[in-house]
Amino acid sequence: MDKNEILREAKTCVLLFGLVCLLSLAYPFFVTFVAETTMPNQAHGSLLYVNGTLVGSELIGQKFTSPAYFHGRPSAVDYNASNSGGSNLGPTSAKLMDQVRERVKQVRSENGLPANATVPADLVLASGSGLDPHISAASAFLQVPRVAKARGLPEFDVRVLVDRHIEPLQFGIFGQERVNVLKLNIALDELAGSRMR
């Protein structure tokens, strides 16, 4: 290749690269425009408002420690949504076993379970994203007596509430039965509020 040819190819190289850069800016803006006009709720992150205040996202789990709320899964990042992540501990990790032993003990004592009771796996093992918004139905029902007691609500009412919040398989096919903890707790606040009035 002579010098002129190399120069010509270099020019093509830069110009074509520039076009790809333009495309990479135009494409997201175009899709954002269409998405925000046709599906604003999803495009903005499925946000949940209570009395006009932003309380979180339907898809992002939240930290609950108070006995008066249903608790979500353990999170390696403490439900910090701007820094998601799992524990990355392997199946033979001693650290993981210590954590799980602690969590099992805590779940048993918080919910008044016998010392040899088994606990659902999702309630003591950290999620992959650290932001898992769901727990299993079993994990929710296990917390009903504690929550009812802390709220001064009849256990039956809380149990009915949980039952209403069990999400079935999507289209009857995909995923598994689960409970969205944030939505359940918002409903729980409403229930307790209406009782107080």
Binding site: G86, P91, A121, L125, S127, G128, P133, S136, Q176, R178
Partner: peptide, 10 residues
């Protein structure tokens, strides 16, 4: 069940 690092919705 090895739920460590897995998500409840799947």
């Amino acid at each position: 069940v090895n739920m460590e690092g897995k998500e409840m919705r799947f």
